[in-house]
Simulated assay, not measured.
Amino acid sequence: MLLAIDAGNTNVVFALVDIGGGEGRAIKARWRIATDPRRTADEYAVWLSQLLSLAGYDRSVVTSVIIATVVPRALHNLRVLAAKYFGGEPLVAGVAPAAFGMAIDVDEPASLGADRAVNTIAAHALHPGDLIVVDFGTATTFDVSDFSGAYKGGIIAPGINLSLDALVTAAAKLPRIAIEAPATKGVIGTNTVDQMTIGIYWGYIAMIEGLLDRLKAEVGRPVTVIATGGLATLFERHTGVFDVIEPDLTIQGLAIMAERAHMTGNSLS
């Protein structure tokens, strides 16, 4: 099985994916740990071995590893983890033999984050036509790709947790609140917590809807909007702008890239 590792700014997600069975990239288990570039390969191995065991798997079931990271300092220890504990050099998204293999039609192609490129690959493999992928992570990103699978550009906005952290840090009397849909039906809050919840939640939905309207107008053709990331389902309940929710888009993209590397004759282990 494939161990797919998505190292983001906030969390590192590890997923065990069966890409050789008849289920078609079935995700058997997933775990996450806070991103810390100082965490050693040995620390990862102890933590991950225990979780594999709790899920009923031995470490030997992992026959290949692929990594996507937007935290360059984390890559070395993840490479060591793969080599030392899983018996081989990992694939790294964006590096041959796991190159992205798509046109990146922007001013600075090398600056495109691996997660956004992997999401685009997965989205194009799963859905036809022009696409917009909205990924709710540390930042909320909007990524546009055309019907050929070429990456055309997008938008980077502060993530909702980042926005809330900035608000609470800068305003001494404002409390920490949960990110959730407001309990009130209207948007006139009558206490501090309700006003903050309305501002964060409905303000964020207004931003999403407004930016998607502008992106669709600029594309000028029918577009499928795909949402991914942990908070996608929270917003889906109160807006109709998402056509599809793909909670595991990045992991699916990594599995697709690993399959492609294998099909071109490169060892996955």
Rank of each mutant, 00 (worst) to 15 (best):
residue 69 T to M: 02
residue 108 E to Y: 10
residue 221 R to C: 01
residue 20 G to M: 11
residue 168 V to N: 06
residue 216 K to S: 03
residue 164 L to K: 14
residue 229 G to T: 06
residue 229 G to R: 04
residue 134 V to D: 12
residue 222 P to A: 05
residue 203 G to Q: 14
residue 72 P to I: 06
residue 157 A to R: 13
residue 201 Y to M: 13
residue 193 V to W: 00
residue 198 I to S: 02
residue 230 G to H: 10
residue 48 L to F: 04
residue 21 G to R: 13
residue 263 M to E: 15
residue 90 P to K: 13
residue 79 R to L: 04
residue 254 L to F: 05
residue 135 D to M: 01
residue 149 G to K: 10
residue 142 F to M: 05
residue 133 V to Q: 01
residue 34 A to N: 10
residue 260 R to K: 15
residue 94 G to R: 11
residue 85 Y to S: 02
residue 63 T to V: 04
residue 28 K to N: 06
residue 251 I to S: 00
residue 203 G to C: 13
residue 245 I to G: 05
residue 141 T to N: 03
residue 126 L to H: 06
residue 154 G to N: 07
residue 8 G to P: 07
residue 248 D to W: 09
residue 121 I to R: 09
residue 7 A to M: 14
residue 48 L to Y: 01
residue 178 A to P: 06
residue 58 D to T: 12
residue 53 S to L: 12
residue 83 A to L: 14
residue 107 D to I: 04
residue 63 T to K: 09
residue 191 N to E: 13
residue 126 L to W: 02
residue 220 G to S: 06
residue 207 M to C: 08
residue 56 G to M: 03
residue 24 G to Q: 13
residue 236 E to F: 02
residue 4 A to L: 07
residue 251 I to M: 05
residue 242 F to I: 07
residue 253 G to Q: 13
residue 48 L to N: 00
residue 268 L to P: 00
residue 252 Q to D: 09
residue 183 A to S: 15
residue 239 T to R: 08
residue 179 I to Y: 02
residue 23 E to T: 10
residue 105 D to T: 05
residue 129 G to C: 06
residue 27 I to A: 01
residue 221 R to L: 07
residue 172 A to L: 08
residue 81 L to W: 02
residue 169 T to Y: 14
residue 193 V to K: 11
residue 11 N to G: 05
residue 65 V to E: 00
residue 74 A to K: 01
residue 192 T to G: 04
residue 186 G to Q: 13
residue 205 I to P: 04
residue 101 G to L: 10
residue 237 R to F: 01
residue 17 V to S: 05
residue 28 K to Q: 07
residue 154 G to D: 02
residue 125 A to V: 03
residue 49 S to F: 08
residue 225 V to T: 12
residue 51 L to K: 14
residue 28 K to G: 00
residue 171 A to Y: 03
residue 246 E to H: 04
residue 65 V to F: 01
residue 30 R to C: 04
residue 84 K to N: 11
residue 49 S to L: 08
residue 126 L to P: 03
residue 211 L to I: 15
residue 166 A to N: 11
residue 185 K to E: 14
residue 239 T to F: 08
residue 138 T to G: 11
residue 17 V to T: 06
residue 25 R to Y: 03
residue 132 I to W: 01
residue 123 A to N: 07
residue 174 L to C: 00
residue 232 A to E: 14
residue 143 D to N: 15
residue 261 A to R: 06
residue 135 D to P: 00
residue 243 D to G: 12
residue 199 G to W: 10
residue 235 F to V: 08
residue 134 V to I: 15
residue 154 G to W: 06
residue 127 H to T: 08
residue 157 A to N: 11
residue 246 E to P: 04
residue 145 S to H: 05
residue 191 N to V: 10
residue 190 T to D: 14
residue 98 A to W: 08
residue 19 I to W: 11
residue 230 G to M: 09
residue 16 L to P: 02
residue 169 T to M: 15
residue 70 V to K: 08
residue 91 L to S: 07
residue 21 G to M: 09
residue 214 R to G: 08
residue 48 L to I: 07
residue 214 R to I: 09
residue 60 S to L: 04
residue 166 A to L: 14
residue 216 K to R: 15
residue 99 A to K: 11
residue 63 T to C: 03
residue 22 G to S: 13
residue 196 M to G: 02
residue 268 L to E: 05
residue 79 R to Y: 04
residue 261 A to F: 01
residue 16 L to I: 02
residue 88 G to V: 07
residue 226 I to T: 11
residue 99 A to M: 10
residue 6 D to R: 11
residue 174 L to S: 00
residue 265 G to T: 07
residue 249 L to Q: 03
